[in-house]
């Protein structure tokens, strides 16, 4: 019962963080910050993406990091070329599996 209450309240506080600047046009981020808001996307998404790419299983090592970095570079280049998320993602995963298999085969 308490567990259910905790999850319900967690949902509530999460909703508040999501809604707070969308509730009213009067409640806005400070005007001076408007110029800096476009940086939110790059900063947060960079902070989500990079640790997962450098250490996909949680540790930084040549055998873990190198294949993932190669895959990320291939995915980014293919995305630049085609502008298709699905192609970048598919090719990135394929390259990752390929390099992992190569490393595994070489022992």
């Amino acid at each position: 019962m308490l567990d259910a209450l905790a999850i319900a309240l967690s949902g509530l506080v999460t909703y508040v963080t999501r809604a707070i600047f969308l509730v009213s046009r009067r409640l806005r981020p400070p005007r001076r910050s408007a110029r800096y808001l476009p940086l939110v996307g790059p900063a947060v998404l960079g902070a989500i993406a990079l640790p997962g790419i450098v250490a996909p299983t949680g540790e930084i090592s040549l055998a873990e990091t190198l294949p993932a970095l190669v895959a990320a570079v291939v995915a980014a280049l293919l995305w630049r070329w085609t502008r298709q998320l699905v192609i970048g993602l598919g090719a990135g995963l394929a390259v990752w599996w390929g390099v992992l298999a190569l490393i595994w085969a070489l022992g």
Binding site: P38, G41, P42, A71, R80, L93
Partner: peptide, 17 residues
């Protein structure tokens, strides 16, 4: 191994920004 799928997705969503 599938751990790279989510960070790769976010990388590709980050690039246009």
């Amino acid at each position: 191994p599938l751990e790279l799928a989510v960070p790769l997705t976010f990388l590709l969503l980050l690039l246009p920004l």
